[in-house]
Amino acid sequence: MLAPETDLPLELRDVSVRAGATQILDGVTVAFSPGAPTVLIGPNGSGKTTLLRTAMGLIEPSGGRVTWGGRERVPPMRRAIVFQRPAMLRRSAAANVEYALSSADVPRAQRPKRVEELLALVGLSGFDARAARRMSGGEQQRLALARALAREPEVLLLDEPTASLDPAATKAIEDVVRAVAARGIKIVMSTHDLGEARRLAGDVVLLHRGRVIEHGPADEFFAAPKTEDARRFMAGELLI
C-alpha cells in the first residue's frame, strides 16, 4: 500500500537562490513540521519572500534541495500561499473561492457549501456577491486566505499578510491565522512586525542577507536571543 501523500515536513537543505549577480538565499537549511506557526522575521531584503516562494515551489533553487514530505518536485496539492499583495480574480468574492475549489478538483455539487464555510471562516459572510477587486486591502487578504484554504492545505505560507493594514484589519487576519492553526494547518508566515511575531509564533526564524541567523522556539528567542544580530534586530538597530 502506498503511504498517504503529504507535504510535511517541508525541508530546505542548503538552498541557494540567485537572481543574476545577487545572492538572495545563501545556503538556507530549515525544516517546517506540524505544530504552532513558524514566523520568519528579518529586515527588508533578507530573503523572507524568496524563502516562502521557494518553499511553495514557485522558485527553482540554484543550489540545494527542497522536499515536501520527503519528495522533490511535488505539485502544490497540499500547500498554499497567500502573497503580500494577492491578485484578486475579476470576479465576485464567492467566485474567487469557487475558482480555487474548482482548481483543487472539489466536486461542483460541494462547492456552494464550501464557499459559504470558507467565507465564514475568514469573517466575510455576506460578501459573496461583492466584486473582489473593490474590497478593502484587509478584506482582500482575508479572501486570499479563504482561497488558499479552499485547497485544504497541510501547510499555509503567508507573506507579510498584515503589511500596510490598519490595527483592526491586522487583528482580523491574526484571528484567522490562529483559527487556521488551531485546525492543525501548519502556518509559515513572514512579518516585519516583531509584536505580531510575539503574538503568533511557535518558533521564529531570523533571516539576514539570505541566511538563517537564528531559529528556535519563540519564547526562548524573544527572552534570550543567542546571536548578536538577533539582539541588535530586536533592539531596533539596522542590520546592514
Binding site: M77, I81, F83, A87, A100, R147
Partner: peptide
C-alpha cells in the same frame, strides 16, 4: 495572475 494561478496549480 501568474503567481496566483501557478500557486493554484
Amino acid at each position: 495572475y501568474r503567481d496566483e494561478l501557478a500557486a493554484m496549480n
